[in-house]
Amino acid sequence: METGSPLNTGPTGNEAAEPTWIGLPPGLLRMRRLLLVVWLGLLALGLGLLLGLLCGPGWAAFALLPLALLAWGWVLIGRNWRSWRYAERADDLLISRGVLWREETVVPYGRMQLVEVTSGPVERHFGLASVQLHTAAAATDATIPGLDPAEAERLRDRLTELGEARSAGL
């Protein structure tokens, strides 16, 4: 199934016209794929060696299982990464994600309580940061992962600025 199905067709007014979607930079894809290859590669190697030495070379074929998983995961990660995109509109932020379980979130800038930029040790190594938006509703799950730190900071500053200008409280 296509990831970028044209759901968003709002023909009313200029603002509701097709927003400019921004995808994620390839850093996140690289990081996730590398982690996948490292972990599943190690698993395949360990399993192959262990089975080959203990049970005979025929059994070592089971080590192909993690490799198949790796190939599948490689594709899945790619599709998932392609499905992530966000758009800054005049008054709200759009985040769209998911391949099988699609989810699209709209957060008006005025409702933002807090914008957070986080970056774990692995993410930092790959030069990535994620931006998370908090509103008064805990159900609002607006996170953009794997951004360039500079872009993340720009987004944070812009969102804070817009949020301040349009703040509305509860």
Partner: peptide, 28 residues
Amino acid sequence: QSVRLSQGPWQRLWHLADVHVDTGANKS
């Protein structure tokens, strides 16, 4: 506070989707 659209694979097959509206009382 925010509006969300979600669509699972089975719902997509039938061209259906859910729309969630989140409020500040932590209820959707």
